[in-house]
Amino acid sequence: MHFSEYDTRLAGYAVIVNDDDEILLSWFNGGKDRLHAIWTLPGGGIEFDESIEAGTVREIKEETGFDAEVVRPLTTHSFTEARRNPIFSDSTDRPFKGVRVVYEARITGGTLGTLEVDGTTDRAEWLPIDSLQNVRHARIIDLGLDAWRAAV
């Protein structure tokens, strides 16, 4: 399929791990479908006029309240869906491709607390990495942590 025949969403996400082996996560509230609420990495859609790194840093700030810097890229992940863009319910019925770049990042300032108003993130928390098997979480966390462990 030619790239002009489907919608693409470019997103940047961050793996941020503290000295206590906790990972900073955002609670995705499911948007219009609250049944799909789930823990995920801080991050999201990159605006048209920003770099992936700058967009990732902006998303970290909006979703967690923390200022951050990107350390290095860890991995990429793509997926396709035959239906409309799952994030935006007002999109057309064109096929959708999500392209996600995952970075390692570190906190440089700020305080914990989401800055989004009426967005898809309700809160952010530090969760012990070893607790993830017991909580509902997005696959992007596992992909990011696997890449982070391989890079350490």
Rank of each mutant, 00 (worst) to 15 (best):
D90C: 03
V117R: 14
T114S: 12
G113N: 13
D90L: 05
G98R: 01
Y103L: 02
R106G: 01
S91D: 13
D93E: 10
P95R: 13
P95C: 09
R94C: 00
G119A: 07
R106S: 07
G98W: 01
L115K: 07
G119F: 14
T114R: 09
L115Q: 09
K97L: 14
G109K: 07
E116S: 09
D118W: 14
R106H: 08
G110V: 13
T108S: 00
G98F: 05
P95G: 12
T111W: 08
P95A: 13
D93S: 08
G110H: 14
Y103W: 02
I107G: 11
A105P: 01
A105V: 01
V101H: 00
A105G: 06
T111K: 03
G119V: 07
E116P: 09
D90W: 06
E116V: 15
T111R: 04
T114V: 02
V101P: 00
S91R: 15
E104A: 15
D90A: 06
F96T: 10
E116T: 15
V117S: 15
P95Y: 09
L115R: 06
S89G: 00
P95T: 08
L115G: 07
V117M: 10
V101S: 02
V101C: 03
T92M: 05
F96S: 07
V117C: 11
S91E: 13
A105K: 07
T114D: 08
E104L: 10
G98N: 04
K97G: 04
G109Y: 06
R100G: 01
L112Q: 12
G119S: 07
R100Q: 01
E104H: 14
D90I: 01
G113Q: 12
L112A: 13
F96L: 06
T114P: 05
G98S: 08
E104K: 15
T114C: 09
G110I: 11
D90P: 04
F96E: 05
R94T: 05
